[in-house]
Every structure is written in structure tokens, then in C-alpha cells.
Amino acid sequence: MGASAIASAETGSHGASADFGHALAQRERRFAAALLAPAFLALLATTTFPLIFLVWTSTFRMNLAMPFMNGFVGFENYRVLLTDERFWSSLLISLVYTGATVALQVAIGLALALLVMDMKRGQGWFRLVAILPVVLSPAVVGMIWRTFMLAPDFGIVDFLAINAGLGSQNWLGDPTLAMVSVIAIHTWQWTPFAFMVLLASLASLPEDIYEAARLDRATAWQRFRRITLPLLRPAIVMVVIMRTMVALTAFAAIFTVTAGGPGTATEILNLYAYRKSFTELSIGYGAALAVALLFVTIIISGVLFVLRRAK
């Protein structure tokens, strides 16, 4: 039964009586409710209920190691959070990690898509190879990089660094290098995503505009700046939004590589909330950190959506 038939029945243009149309519409509603019920009950139970429970938990002192101290504390966790230096530093690390990985993914992905687009042969190779990183588990990716790529001496990156005259580096032990490493790993895994999406939208751009531009003797840079970039904007914004959401909640690829270390050098807010809850067993405060992360996510996505609407 199609919606169009219902629509015509409802407006009466079908010639059927209003009663008949009404009965049909009601039956359709009931059918829809029955089809939706299982999925929506499952979503309520696995997303909405946990969210409410999370906010509720964040108003408690709840420590699994010291249950005798547990109790309702109101906004106490949030008061502590505002003066918690580790919270602010993890928030900053989250923002640096997200900003750097998203910018790199879009820049490299776009450059490669432009490079590959005009290739007559070899595009297939790119499409095939680009799929490999994105289907892998970030946990496995992190593990491979931590060991076979970044280990001192025989790790390939270190081997290349030694041969380039940079000397052997402590890629995951030095605070700055560790941050560079986790950013590089995330960028390695997800640039193919930006590349594939942007290549697909490049391929769908109208040919004749470029033809006209060429007749007008526009330079390559002008064509890129004045035609390609504006036409590609929706796709770029979409990639930025999607990748930002994922980078903000990245977990496995940092957890497996540095576990937030050395010290707290790569501890993004997400990881701090996890460590607080499940390593230090301070679940109430961990919940408050998670709520803070949710707020940050909502604010950033709000900003991105406004940017998307603009122009």
C-alpha cells in the first residue's frame, strides 16, 4: 500500500468516501506502529534510558572501590570538574586531536581526490587500497602501529627515521611525539574515507562548467577556487561533520597505542572519562565527565550545523 494512494484517499480526489479514507489511514498508522515498535523499544532501552541513567549517576558519589562513601551529592561532581586541571587538559587534547585529524583528513583526502580524478588508469587501485584501512577495527590498527610500525629500531617508521638521519625516536614515550603519533594513526586510518567521499562527489560535478571555464582561459587554480571548491562545499562540510563526531569519541586507536600516556599526554576527554570510571572506579565522577563530553559534542555539532547552513 503506497502513501500516494492514502494521500489521494485522504483528499477525497480518489472518489472514495471520507470514512473509507479515514479507516485506511488509521489502519496504516496501526501497521506502522507495529512495525516500528520492536526497533524503538530497543533504542529506548539501549540509548535513551542509559542517557537518563547517566545524568542521574553523575549526581552521585559512586566509587566501586569505596561503596560505603556512596550517596547523592547533587552538582558536587560538576563543581569539582570545573576546577579539575586534568579535565581541562583532556578537553584541550580532545580539541587538538579532533582539529588536527579532521583538517589533515580533509586536506590530504581532497588533494588526492583531485590528483586521482583525472587519472585514466590506476584509479581502481586507489579505490581498492583505500577500502582497507576504513574497514579495519581501530583496535587492530592501533595495535599494528604500536608494534610493527612505531617500535624502536625495527619498527618501520623508526627505521625510516634512522635512515633519514633523524635518529631513533621514542615515538610513544615522548609526550609530543606520542600526540603526533596518535594523530598520524587516526589520519592514516580515516583519510581514505574523506578521499572516497570527495572523489565520488568530484565525479558527479557537471562537466560543462569546466568546459566553459577552459574556454574563458581560467587557470587551474582559478577553476579549483571558483568552481570546484564551491561545488564541493556540501560534501566537504559533510565529511568534516562526520569525522569530527568520530574523532571526538575516538577510543580504541588511542587506548591500544598509548592508553592516554605517557602520563596524560594523549588522554582525550573520552579516555579520561573511561579511566576515571573503570580504572579508578570513580563512576559518579566518570559519569559527570561523560556528560561534559556530550555537552562538548552537542556544542561543536551545533556550530558545524550553523556553518553548514551559512551561505
Binding site: G2, A3, I6, A7, A25, E28, R29, F31, A32, A33, L35, L36, F40, L43, T46, T47, T48, F49, P50, L51, F53, L54, T57, M245, L248, T249, F251, N270, L271, A273, Y274, S277, I283, G286, A287, A290, V291, L293, L294, T297, I298, S301
Partner: peptide, 28 residues
Amino acid sequence: RLRFRGKKFAGFYVLTTQMLPPVGIIIP
């Protein structure tokens, strides 16, 4: 395919559930 009241809201609800940070809902 079907017509019913609250369809837009239902679709929007499904989308918003994806925004929750996993580390938040793992605690409950």
C-alpha cells in the same frame, strides 16, 4: 513508505541516538 503522525520526529530520534558518546552510555 507509511504515513503516520510523528514520522519526522521518529526519524530524527533515530539520528540523535547516534550522537551519544559511547563512553557515556557504557557506564549505565
